[in-house]
Write a protein that binds this DNA or RNA. Structure first.
Lengths: 344, 344
DNA sequence: ACGTGTTACTGACACGTGTCAGTATACACC
DNA sequence: GGTGTATACTGACACGTGTCAGTAACACGT
């Protein structure tokens, strides 16, 4: 746009008042007396000039950017995580907007330094950050937290007391396995979503273990295989499970993408789910319901996570510190076909 | 963060120079002479204080926000469009970053006014906008374009000369249908992705028609059904096609989500793809390759669209106006199982 | 006549940066 | 020894807003 943008000075001139008055009227400053006629004149002048206050100037003088950023670390699990991006992002944006904030999206590519996002905070580009995805417990993060810069993690960073939002992985896994137990299965295997270096992976495994123990069944490490985010890892893991002498009759697979690969392995062996083997997944990716068989899975509320993260962050920004800063959302089991509940 | 943020004045004081010198050194202003020793002292002082320039102040004085926004209209086709969000957004962000820009994500909810995004432009929150999704040809858009505010559309708005980035729908559809023709099919049906009010829908239908005519086959409107973004519409459309006296031996379905529904209809009738009916989809959604049968489909380069839109926009912002502002990206046919090419 | 309070507004400063015009010094040149 | 030029820096202004202290006008009670 050319340089003909109107400023509050132009509005003031047209309305025949001072710039201060314009500001007071347009911002509806309380406890200040402006005559109705003047107020009307200012409003009319602003409308006539199509005046919008300059965001940069506002930011500078107020010290607030009214912006939060979603920092999205990209890694080897990219496709897996992409499945959650629309929900997470739109949840965060919607909550942000409700409180008058904008959302900056900032992916960190694998070839960037792990703390490339720090300038967003230090350079006052945003009032706070949501950090999603793997990151080493680097000092930049802890420094920023120590300097009281508003941060919320999506996921968990054990050891630090940084506010975080995540799904209750252990509970979700327990629900899935309990469901299989209730269907009468006794030999239940598991394929993890990822290596155990990932917290979520460990927690889902622990949920599996607890559900078994709770039912009086032994936890047998021989029935556990390790996925690695993608379909191919699921195929291999199932392949391996099928070679057991005592095949499980059901498998809890802690990731839908991995489960898709496992289902392929079953087909390749001429086996069918759920008749020959019951399957319960985890995540409830968008197309889980459209597979054959439709995937029974543990729904992860991506939108809710985004909303929760943004809301928690904004509370922290505005000094309204909640007493519980470790938010854990509940998952929900979505029963479809692959578990066999409907064929019984 | 508390008020202890260092400013360039602090750096100047510590280095024993003027604030101007600090600015000159840190911005590496060319054609200005600063002694190596002074330069070093300034750099050292900045490092020691952990100084980052204030983005708001920079924006104000430079008149540039170094930010572009992706405006994401949400509508009835939400789930359909969500499939493209990760690719589009990451493509846009990556291109933006390459040129030193940030990306603001701004979804417009159905309950918001259609031009709720205008304040982003008028209020100088961003230097330019990418608009994605349906929008009436409202006056706000045209006004902004007339005022030379940098805009790029994702999709097409017939009639206006606003720069836009889109996929070559007609060519993509032609490629799909030609493929089926090459496999020997003569009776080829079509299910559109959406009602014909959508430009992309019309273009894909036109591509289908042209490919038939090109092969000397008649275009028969009886073999065309209309999808509506979702799976269920595909199921119904295929249902209807199956009731024809002369069933098509192949169907081009201009949306993978719709194709998934169509495949379900086939299964429900005890028919198999590709043996009983060959299927080619459109979009190449993330899980298209994992269905049974794996979907042969026309790949839409979401990342490339995002990248292209951001790059075009930034060129316009920086006054480097390209002579072609209507960018059309090529699609690519991805041959998998549902077309039957592999079984022959 | 005088102090007090209320109403309706305004002048001036501050936010932190980029940048332009200007200055002081040193040095070269004939 | 005066003029010109390159070097190395600095002072002051501008960007457009929010806000605080202040002021003028006026009503009111005594």
């Amino acid at each position: 746009m050319p340089t003909d943008r109107p400023t509050s000075r132009d509005v003031a001139r047209l309305a025949g008042v001072s710039r201060t008055t314009v500001s007071l009227v347009l911002n509806n400053v309380p406890d200040v007396h402006i005559s109705p006629e003047t107020r009307q004149r200012v409003l009319e002048a602003a409308r006539q000039l199509n005046y919008y206050p300059d965001a940069s100037a506002r930011r500078l003088v107020s010290g607030k950017t009214s912006t939060i950023a979603l920092v999205w670390h990209r890694g080897p699990d990219q496709m897996y995580r992409d499945a959650f991006l629309p929900g997470l992002l739109q949840g965060a944006t919607r909550a942000a907007r409700r409180y008058g904030y904008y959302v900056l999206f900032r992916p960190i590519e694998p070839d960037e330094p792990d703390d490339a996002w720090v300038e967003l905070a230090r350079g006052r580009h945003t009032d706070g950050l949501i950090l999603s995805g793997p990151r080493s417990d680097d000092t930049a993060l802890l420094d920023l937290h120590r300097d009281r810069f508003p941060l919320v993690l999506h996921g968990q960073l054990p050891g630090a007391d940084i506010p975080s939002v995540d799904v209750d992985n252990e509970q979700g896994a327990m629900t899935a396995v309990r469901h299989l137990l209730a269907l009468g299965h006794q030999r239940i295997g598991m394929i993890t979503n990822a290596p155990l270096a990932y917290t979520a992976s460990r927690q889902r495994l622990e949920g599996y273990r607890r559900a078994l123990v709770e039912a009086g069944l032994p936890f047998d490490a021989d029935r556990v295989r390790y996925g690695n985010f993608d379909e191919e890892s699921g195929r291999q893991a199932m392949e391996s499970l099928l070679s057991l002498e005592e095949r499980p009759t059901a498998v809890f697979i802690a990731s839908d993408m991995v489960a898709i690969g496992a289902l392929r392995a079953l087909r390749e062996h001429g086996l069918r789910a759920p008749e020959d083997m019951a399957i319960v997944g985890f995540d409830d990716i968008a197309t889980a319901r459209y597979f054959t068989p439709a995937l029974t899975t543990v729904h992860v509320p991506a939108f809710g996570l985004g909303w929760g993260a943004a809301e928690l962050l904004i509370r922290i920004i505005e000094g309204d510190l909640p007493n519980e800063t470790q938010v854990r959302l509940e998952t929900q089991l979505v029963v479809r076909e692959s578990c066999g509940a409907h064929v019984r």
